[in-house]
Simulated assay, not measured.
Amino acid sequence: MKQALIMDVDTGVDDALALLYLLASPEAEVVAITCTAGNVSAQHVARNNLALLELCGASHIEVALGSEVPLVQPLETAEATHGPQGIGYAELPEPTTSLSPRHATEVWADIVRSRPGEVIGLVTGPLTNLALALRIEPELPLLLKRLVVMGGSFNHIGNTTPTSEWNIAVDPDAAKIVFDAFSVLPPERRPIVCGLDITEQIGLLPEDIARIAELAGSTPAETLDPEQPRGTRSTASNHIVRHLSDAVRFYVENQNDNGDGYRAHMHDPFAAALAIQPELAEYRSATVDVELTGTLTRGTTVADYRGMWGREHNADIATSTQPRVFLDQLVERVGRFARDKGVSS
């Protein structure tokens, strides 16, 4: 039985791969994609999603524009990590489909009202849209089946400041609103939080891209190698493989520059996997809050595991997984999806 999801994204190379993974997963039904500013502007995010859905033959999925700025602080974007358009070196055709007439916040509210207890919320960008949707529908936490958030850093160094993770740091005020609002839920429905502690254990390697291309029946053999000239473009016959490879190449070049190796951290795809297969990880429950006033620590997620604040736990933090199990599943699913949808060109 398929699991219905709303994806809220700031696409983003890894958001794009998360979408591919879910489209390729028999358990998932993506009912809407809502777009927020983060990795790139919200307009670029929306265009990327429309183009990706057309590429994959899934233009029936609603794409709605959301907030173009954080709640309080100025917008910070990450073109250095994700490319000027957000999808690395990939150059997707201009989409022919249009954005939804509804705002992202309306999409969140309308869908959970119409399908109470049925829909999983997956947020792989800043939490701005969800925080704003709570103003429209305060009962949203109770109406969702579950929330999965890619965000935070707990017992791990940050990737935006020394202590903060990107999605939370872009809009910490929104993140605090969401964590506070979702504190009303019983233990079996607590949000899953997928932070850097676990996502930086998972790295997509060049040989994984090669395997995706092989499964797709794409030619010639796909090669990503740090010895190749920077910005080398794929010549894959399969158009999904070609665009995926070009997007990932930019991402791994950046990570290699930063000393993380020639691989792509699977932040958003792993969060997507936990949305439909929570058994892929082990968890530790905690009360999660967000620092807003620290001079050096604004945007830091803080987890109270021992109940020192005297508040109920409001999140299940993913702590460990078997990276290769997930990566092999992603490669298998995306490769076969590309074979079926990515007509050679």
Rank of each mutant, 00 (worst) to 15 (best):
D10M: 10
D14N: 02
D15E: 07
A18E: 14
Y21P: 03
A28L: 08
T34H: 14
A37V: 13
G38E: 10
V40R: 10
V40N: 10
Q43G: 08
Q43C: 05
N48E: 07
L50E: 09
A58Y: 02
A58P: 12
V69R: 07
L71N: 03
V72I: 10
L75R: 03
T77N: 13
Q85A: 13
I87Y: 10
I87M: 07
R102L: 15
A104Q: 04
S114H: 10
R115K: 13
R115Y: 13
T128G: 08
R135S: 13
R135K: 10
E137W: 00
S153A: 14
T160G: 06
T161P: 09
T163A: 13
P172L: 08
D173E: 15
D173N: 14
D173I: 09
A175Q: 05
I177C: 15
A181K: 01
S183C: 07
V184R: 15
C194D: 15
C194I: 15
G195L: 05
D197V: 01
R211W: 12
E214C: 02
A216Y: 08
P220V: 03
A221F: 09
Q228V: 02
P229D: 11
P229I: 02
P229W: 02
T235R: 04
S237P: 01
D246L: 04
Y251F: 11
D257Q: 11
D257A: 13
N258W: 07
D260P: 05
D260N: 13
P269M: 05
P269C: 05
P278K: 00
E279R: 00
A281V: 08
E282N: 13
S285P: 08
T287I: 03
E291Q: 02
L292G: 01
G294E: 13
T297M: 04
R298V: 00
T301H: 07
M308Q: 14
R311D: 15
N314I: 04
A315C: 07
D316H: 15
I317D: 12
I317V: 14
D328M: 00
Q329H: 13
Q329M: 11
V331R: 01
R339N: 15
R339Q: 15
G342D: 15
